[in-house]
């Protein structure tokens, strides 16, 4: 599958400057992410997974190196430009769901569109479809407080899809969930992958990594292992698990 690359990073370096000491979190990473791929990023604590994901999500800038997202060099963009990229091309799923408490389900799903200048009255149906897609069609006006953890994470998934992003980024998306709920969320992610969406998931959990088509292992801010699985392998594994 010679798909086009959504992400290209070259010699990506991040050094946290704490004044007295400098903490190198990423030490010159190189890889590409293809469109439609499902990649898991693994590694021990402190290996730089979150740091990498923050840079890929345009929440942070690398100290050195190149980061091409789509066709644009985003490593040197201004804060305002990065906000635009985040809002238009990236869908975030967080470990702690991070819904906005005073907004209901449909309003939470709409938030990224608001910052793209799109009014909720024009996109209500679109948001409602996404809510139905994650199985919350009957909870549209519920507040996050009134939902279970799994349900909240479903809302977060719907929210990450609302702006038709280039890719979805998730940092430990099932870290706060019990195993049955975890399976439900992972099934939704599988579904999205099947639809052709690009997924990048940071995880400690082998159950998550098993579903991915590629696993990048980080160690001390460097790529330790980069394992690509055949699509068929992955599917057969899944079938085996479900059986």
């Amino acid at each position: 599958m010679a798909d086009r690359n959504i992400i290209e990073i070259r010699n990506l370096t991040k050094i946290y400057d704490l004044g007295a000491i400098q903490v190198p979190a990423l030490k010159g990473l190189n890889f590409e992410i293809e469109e439609g791929s499902y990649t898991a990023i693994m590694g021990p604590s402190g290996s730089g997974k979150s740091t990498l994901l923050n840079i890929l999500g345009c929440l942070d800038r690398p100290t050195a190196g190149a980061y091409i997202l789509g066709n644009d060099d985003v490593a040197h963009m201004s804060d305002k430009e990065l906000s635009g990229v985040r809002g238009a091309r990236i869908g975030f799923i967080f470990q702690s769901y991070n819904l906005i408490q005073q907004l209901n389900v449909i309003e939470n799903i709409h938030v990224p569109l608001f910052y793209q200048g799109k009014d909720i009255s024009d996109y209500y149906d679109h948001c409602e479809k996404l809510a139905q897609k994650v199985g919350l069609g009957d909870r549209l006006d519920h507040r996050p407080m009134e939902l279970s953890g799994g349900q909240q994470q479903r809302v977060a998934v719907a929210r990450s899809l609302v702006n038709e992003p280039l890719m979805l980024l998730a940092d430990e998306p099932t870290g706060n969930l019990d195993s049955t709920t975890e399976q439900e969320i992972l099934d939704i992610l599988d579904e999205l992958h099947a639809e052709g969406r690009t997924l990048l998931v940071v995880t400690h959990d082998d159950a998550v990594a098993e579903r991915a088509s590629r696993v990048i292992h980080l160690k001390d801010g460097q790529v330790d292992k980069d394992i690509r699985k055949q699509d068929s392998d992955r599917k057969s594994e899944n079938q085996f698990q479900e059986a």
């Binding site: 804060d79 906000s83 991070n98 819904l99 938030v111 910052y115």
Partner: peptide, 16 residues
């Protein structure tokens, strides 16, 4: 603070 972080991640500029 967290809400602000979320909004920023979802595309809010500093001006927003």
């Amino acid at each position: 603070t967290q809400e602000i972080g979320v909004r920023r991640a979802l595309g809010a500029t500093r001006l927003n």
